[in-house]
Write a protein that binds this DNA or RNA. Structure first.
Lengths: 227, 227
DNA sequence: GAAATAGTGTCTTTGAGACAATATATG
DNA sequence: CATATATTGTCTCAAAGACACTATTTC
């Protein structure tokens, strides 16, 4: 195990969210990729993707690199969640984990390397994970739901253009409740740019496509970022 | 310098807030204690109190211990702020700092050990600090102001009992604007327990004393805390 | 035209805030 | 009683939500 001269190891892990249909209800719901541990503490258990921080990379870079290496995913949004450093959280030495959380677009999520040791799970129905990772995912879910309520990050789950129905379905998937289409439109319309395109093909009035207002930053660069 | 086997040092620092009169306006405003650096990187500069994390203590314990050692203060509220880990933030090796922020009561703040190398400063008018500490204080101030708006932490600046005017002055000091006494009363009254005591002595109608609703937790135990 | 969703209009409720009015202490 | 703050009352405005209604496409 790598560790500091202090005898403390510094790790980075990431809770990666993508939206997929729920296995039972079929409704869109958050999923996360987990990695099966192949080394000693908690061997065989599912865990959050992560690894050690190297001296030449920032914490966010370490999170992004690790995410790419273990799942081949590039996140549309990445934000620091919390630093977990309780003494007994790893049975095998002292580990402080800086945990990030991320959102990936559905097209990106399909490319995710899935296999024997990497698999997606519905975030609200996880097996018993290694370390304190169950509690960490709970907290990340809480942060996702809270932040969707007061910011515009929900659109990180979508592509370049989208209909209001698609955006509403993202909110419904995250918040796990139905939203009124009429009221929803009024709430988000001001921060969206309408395009001239519409989506035809459905057996109903074709909806307009919208685009993100580019003046709104999607990536969280942390408190030190200059605006 | 202590550092990990990874070659990364793990530090803890704390932004400690107490309310005192502003040197110019005389109005109550947030102050923070700073420590003068007596060792090489940024020697002579003011910096946030902090130190290295030892393997036997949690991050929050390390913050509280360090706070006690350098300023002799016990916080009424302590919460993790952010983990700062940019590569170049210390000119002398790689340092990752887990930063906490704290609130202390006025009675406690008076006991603070002040001297040549420890001094209180108004948080909105600081000298050029060591490392990235100016930006960190900015962020802590932002967190304090934001959180006062949607939670009940403001009362961590007060003692056991207090009048509504005293509580309102805390909000006014943090938010830096006047609040209507009538509307303020209605907003906070539901979460306070009225006592039978009143404060006499002023040349006006004596105000009632209130107490915290004990069912509301003041200390932030982090996302892993079981409720 | 039937079905289905897109999109608009309107009413109610709720909370924040401005501000007037009344209450009760001290000197 | 004058003064000063405590405390209550009332009005306005804005946002959220419920829900009726109109629009436009495919089949």
């Amino acid at each position: 195990m790598e560790h500091t001269q202090q005898g403390i190891s510094l790790a980075v892990s990431t809770v990666i969210f993508a939206l997929r249909p729920h296995p039972e209800t079929g409704l869109s719901t958050p999923w996360i990729p987990l990695v099966r541990r192949i080394t000693k503490p908690y061997e065989g258990r599912w865990a959050l993707p992560g690894g050690w921080v190297s001296p030449e990379e920032s914490l966010a870079d370490a999170a992004a690199r690790n995410l790419l290496e273990t799942t081949a995913l590039k996140p549309a949004y990445l934000e620091q969640l919390y630093a977990f450093g309780e003494v007994g959280r790893s049975p095998d030495g002292r580990v402080v984990s800086i945990v990030y959380w991320a959102m990936v677009r559905p097209h990106e999520a399909e490319r995710a390397a899935e296999g024997e040791n990497v698999r997606w799970h519905p975030a609200d129905h996880l097996p018993k994970l290694a370390f304190d990772h169950n509690a960490i995912v709970e907290y990340a879910l809480w942060r996702l739901r809270t932040k969707v309520g007061y910011s515009r990050i929900a659109r990180a789950f979508l592509g370049e253009t989208f209909t209001l129905a698609e955006l509403r379905e993202v909110y419904e998937a995250v918040l796990q409740r139905q939203l009124d289409p009429a009221n929803f439109r009024r709430q988000v319309e001001g921060s969206l740019v309408p395009t001239e395109s519409r989506v035809s093909g459905g057996r109903h009035r074709p909806p307009r496509l919208y685009r993100h207002d580019e003046s709104i930053e999607l990536v969280d660069n942390g408190p030190l970022a200059s605006p």
